[in-house]
Design a protein around this nucleic acid. Structure first.
Lengths: 206, 206
DNA sequence: TTAAATTAATTAAACGCTTGTTTAATATTA
DNA sequence: TAATATTAAACAAGCGTTTAATTAATTTAA
């Protein structure tokens, strides 16, 4: 991927996150990126292919970290969950604009194949968490719970505060100019909450 | 609100949920609703005002039920939480297309005043839940937790399985033609999960 | 090393099409 | 008869995309 293509993609992520795919015009994007309107089609072929390139280029942001945690034998099962929570929060906060774009697209029923591709990007993360939970249940360390819905709770909680800044601020009772995603203490607060939630829900009383 | 306006709004909700606001053209909508393209502007003035009318008309779907539960003296605090979970699942499942439209709009940074209005629609629900949780903490019935994030977990879990059918199916490991929202047993499963989650998280060990 | 030849990058302008909206004529209802 | 509802057609503006001309960069050859 050339520098120029990356430059366009980086601005595209921002605009798509703000206005959505249909809501962003190529002229908007070209202006924001400081390039001629024709450059998008010159480099990517079409607006839709630009979007696909964007997803492809950024998709790799997810690999590796969760896997390492899940396979680290020195961690107990609950420690794995805790580290996964931290890694996931960190990952989503860092890539929150791209994450927003993925969710917008996943919610819609247009461009079916692309929506399917996005699910395939996000699903492996769920699968890793699922594996850890099921292993814990099997050993009797975790209570008998509903692994897919436990994942929904972890991911859903993060998404709930990540996807709508406005709602997040209102919920936390903060002033309008507060940016929760720039505040490290908020990430810690979220992490603490999720860890306590999972401790209480997963661990068998002993 | 006349029958004709409601007829148009009902079809608009469906299309907006599928394709988003920008992705839906008035010609699409007119065709789906079986009316002339000019009727939308005749009745609503503009596409954007149609959207506002839609939000206004459907916004009332949320009032009342949660309030009644929160104020019902015959319920214990944890019972209130349980009933709120059921009421909320029922409400969101029943109005899931409208709920999807709200979330799409809330994620974007266009039409700021409308996005703000949507937050004001959804926030009262959170406020009611918050009140119940804080009351429970004060009495010592509930553990000291983080009420705003507890709400994020409840609402976020439901949204996670509600807003992307594709992801939900993948997570549950179901076949592609499965429609979780038409399956009463799934609503029960989700309810059970959330109740167990909140039991474990909120209740003090005694 | 320099000049020509070739390829790549960039531009402003235009293309055809779709968009939301309006108009002016017609049909329906009160 | 007067107000309301409905229609097909047209409107200007914006859309994604293409074109053809120009500039910049790179390669080739002497």
């Amino acid at each position: 991927m050339t520098d120029k293509k990356l430059h366009i993609i980086n601005h595209a992520v921002e605009l798509f996150a703000e206005k959505g795919f249909e809501g962003t015009s190529i002229r908007d994007l070209a202006a924001r990126a400081g390039v001629n309107v024709a450059m998008v089609n010159y480099y990517f072929g079409s607006k839709e292919k630009l979007f696909e390139s964007l997803v492809e280029e950024r998709a790799s942001y997810s690999r590796g970290v969760l896997d390492e945690i899940a396979n680290n034998a020195s961690y107990s099962d609950i420690e794995k969950i805790e580290h996964i929570i931290d890694a996931y929060i960190n990952k989503l906060f860092t890539n929150r604009k791209f994450h927003r774009v993925l969710h917008q697209e996943m919610m819609l029923s247009q461009r079916e194949t692309l929506a399917q591709a996005i699910v395939e990007i996000l699903y492996p993360n769920s699968l890793i968490i699922k594996g850890v939970i099921e292993a814990g249940i099997k050993k009797g360390v975790f209570r008998k719970c509903d692994p897919p819905l436990v994942i929904a709770s972890i991911v859903g909680t993060i998404n709930q505060v990540l996807l709508s800044k406005r709602m997040c601020i209102k919920l936390l009772d903060k002033e309008a100019d507060y940016v929760p995603y720039d505040d490290p203490s908020f990430a810690i607060r979220l992490s603490d909450h999720l860890k306590q939630l999972m401790h209480a829900h997963l661990l068998t009383k002993s």
